[in-house]
């Protein structure tokens, strides 16, 4: 009877310990990635390729996400605000909501889905086809050649994506506010400008940098530790997206506490 009662608790304990161990391993891997970013040799060509792949090619998905989110946010705030006659706060809440939270978080999650999966699949395939071993025999450290350029590129590219996403998201809110909810365009823009502070924007960009780092580190970690065969690569890809998404949400909470708790 006791065994039956304890079984689910044991399962929860085992899962928790496993998750904590995984976070620890990813953190160590992230530390190693930073140390490789700082020490030569550097691979600028691989860095630029990663920057284009992670930053430039993620623009459409991040932009579309931000546009629709900004529009939906405007509708929600207008409808919710109507309950206590506060419809006029739509521009400022859309702006603050986008730059502080939704821009970085949704941008980070979209990049996690697109980039962490592709990095994990690419490096995982390289592992199972012995390309990682080949790199070592060619006197090239896989952490330096594969991980460091991707981590640096993602850490720099995601804040830029967040900045673009913030602007598009605010524009989405503006489009809905002006065309659907009847706001005066000049008043909408003035309210957006007046209520937005520099720290709102900067804090979102810092979050973007942290999320970019998380995305690339988890993608590389699960790729490098991929199991054998197509199934192993598939598992690594799935694990990379799940871990990156959960870590982004958890980190977002911690950073919000750090940045905005009174």
């Amino acid at each position: 009877m006791t065994t039956l009662l304890l079984a689910p608790l044991r399962g929860i304990g085992r899962t928790t310990l496993g998750a904590l161990a995984a976070i620890g391993r990813i953190a160590l891997f992230g530390g190693s990635a930073i140390s490789h970013i700082l020490r030569p040799p550097f691979y600028p060509k691989e860095f630029l390729q990663a920057l284009v792949h992670i930053g430039y090619f993620s623009l459409p998905v991040v932009g579309m996400t931000a546009l629709f989110t900004g529009g939906a946010l405007a509708l929600q705030i207008y409808s919710g605000g109507a309950r206590f006659s506060a419809e006029t706060v739509v521009p400022s809440i859309v702006a603050i909501g986008m730059v502080r939270e939704l821009g970085p978080v949704l941008g980070g999650l979209m990049v996690a889905a697109r980039v962490a999966s592709s990095i994990a699949a690419e490096i995982g395939t390289m592992k199972v086809t012995e390309q990682i071993d080949a790199l070592v025999t060619l006197s090239t450290h896989p952490m330096k050649y594969l991980t460091a350029p991707r981590v640096l590129a993602a850490t720099l590219a995601v804040p830029a994506l967040v900045a673009v996403g913030d602007s598009i998201g605010i524009f989405g809110g503006y489009l809905v506010g002006v065309n659907r909810l009847g706001f005066n365009p000049a008043t909408y823009l003035k309210n957006t400008r007046d209520f937005l502070e520099t720290w709102d924007i900067v804090s979102g960009l810092w979050k973007g940098a942290a999320f970019g780092f998380i995305v690339a580190v988890t993608g590389c970690y699960y790729g490098m530790n991929s199991g054998r065969g197509a199934q192993g690569v598939g598992r690594a890809t799935k694990a990379a997206v799940v871990a990156a998404s959960v870590l982004i949400l958890a980190t977002n909470y911690i950073l919000t506490e750090l940045f905005f708790s009174a």
Binding site: T129, E130, Q131, D133, A134, T137
Partner: peptide, 20 residues
């Protein structure tokens, strides 16, 4: 020393292991 040591080797892998 790792780099000097590995510079003495060449290896043909089973599947080629060429970088795609």
């Amino acid at each position: 020393a790792r780099d000097v040591f590995l510079a003495r080797f060449g290896m043909l892998f089973q599947g080629g292991a060429l970088f795609d």
